[in-house]
C-alpha cells in the first residue's frame, strides 16, 4: 500500500512539475507570439503553443485521472494542423481558398 501511495504522490508531483515546465514554455512562446518581428514567427509560435497545449491537456488528464480528455488532445492536433496550414497559405499567397480559374 505504501508503495502505491508513494507512486501516486510521485505521479502528482511529476505532473505538477511538468505542468509548470510546459507553462514556462508557453509563456516564452507567448513572448515570441507577441514580440515576433514577423508574422511567420508568430504563426510558428502559435503552432508550438498548440502543441504545448496538447501536452498540457494530456498532463491535466493525468492530473484529473480521467480519459475523457483524449478527444481534445487529438482534436487540438488536427485543428492546429489545419489552422497552421491556413495561416501559412495566407502568408504565402494572401488567400486561403483559391477561386477556380474557369
Amino acid at each position: 500500500m505504501e508503495t502505491l501511495e508513494m507512486t501516486q504522490a510521485l505521479l502528482e508531483i511529476v505532473t505538477e512539475i511538468c505542468i509548470v515546465g510546459v507553462s514556462i514554455s508557453l509563456f516564452i512562446l507567448l513572448y515570441r507570439a507577441i514580440k515576433g518581428p514577423t508574422n511567420p514567427d508568430r504563426a510558428v509560435a502559435l503552432d508550438t503553443i498548440g502543441i504545448n497545449l496538447m501536452g498540457l491537456a494530456g498532463l491535466i488528464a493525468i492530473y484529473l485521472v480521467t480519459t475523457k480528455l483524449n478527444d481534445i488532445i487529438l482534436l487540438i492536433g488536427i485543428l492546429l494542423f489545419i489552422g497552421t496550414v491556413a495561416i501559412a497559405k495566407f502568408l504565402e499567397k494572401g488567400v486561403i481558398i483559391e477561386r477556380d480559374m474557369d
Partner: peptide, 13 residues
Amino acid sequence: RIAAILILGVVGY
C-alpha cells in the same frame, strides 16, 4: 492585425 488575430487565438486556446 495578423498578430492581433494570432494572439487572440492564444486566448481562445
